[in-house]
Design a binder for these strands. Sequence first.
DNA 1: TCCGTTAATGCAAAAATTTGCGCCAGCAAA
DNA 2: TTTGCTGGCGCAAATTTTTGCATTAACGGA
Lengths: 142, 142
Amino acid sequence: MSGHESAVSRLRAQGYRMTPQRLSVLDIVARRTGHVGADEVWNLAREEHPYVDLATIYRTLQWLKGLGVVTEVIIGNKLHFEMADHHNPHNHMVCSVCDGVQTLTPDYLAEFSQRLEQEFGFSPNLDNITIGGMCNQCRAVT
Amino acid sequence: MSGHESAVSRLRAQGYRMTPQRLSVLDIVARRTGHVGADEVWNLAREEHPYVDLATIYRTLQWLKGLGVVTEVIIGNKLHFEMADHHNPHNHMVCSVCDGVQTLTPDYLAEFSQRLEQEFGFSPNLDNITIGGMCNQCRAVT
DNA sequence: TCCGTTAATGCAAAAATTTGCGCCAGCAAA
DNA sequence: TTTGCTGGCGCAAATTTTTGCATTAACGGA
Ligand SMILES: [Mn+2]
Ligand SMILES: [Mn+2]
Ligand SMILES: [Zn+2]
Ligand SMILES: [Zn+2]
């Protein structure tokens, strides 16, 4: 498989029921290098389990996101996902013109995060943040 | 009125047509202290113009956002808006548990923003960013 | 292996937001 | 004041995501 067996057994150990639908979603996201749209996950999942519902896909993806197993990226008003890599975590910058995605180590956000915590007692969750803006190439065109 | 006449004349000067619908939306957002949901804007706008369509509300709000006249905040999976105050700009932290909103001067994001620009050539637009997380009180409950 | 508990699913509908298109009205020029 | 251009609107439908509810099936224990 694609190296997500550890996630599966960890989830099962936590008492979650590992249904074929969940395994399929996990498989699809793990197999993919890069970001998958929710609808894309659905279409791929249906190849294996023709009856799976889109609501299940969304619920599963949100569930995995909450557990830190997958990461969410907003690309062009649509939710995308990818496997969270805890050995090599990263955040995303998405260009609103070309929908291009650049990555960022969380170091860039560390100081900001700490200040929110210290000065406001607010615990930000920046794992799934998407930074919008304009990329180098698109700006050059203007 | 609520001090948005300057915005109106600036927009008209830029060649945009100031329709009753647009004036109404501007009025509603400017009159409100705090954040208004898109649906709320619609309901208030309909009191004056019963025929206005929700699509117009969304289009107008996005248009004003793009021009920097209003600011967007995501509260509980729904879009909210407020007048952008260029004399006193701020960003938002929203608690995912209680939907409470705290504000933040852009200073907190300035260094982060500059680094993205300098090191990646990426021009982030952080005016409308919403920082998710958990507030002080909600964390205390846990 | 069978059973019972209850978490998770399918299904249907709702909610939230965006989009295509033909008509209408804002506003500048005559 | 009238006219013409075209940007903005209403309307309808599509898209995207979420939610409620009855049924099903995962899985630990008998
Ligand atoms: Mn990524
Ligand atoms: Mn605010
Ligand atoms: Zn770009
Ligand atoms: Zn809270």
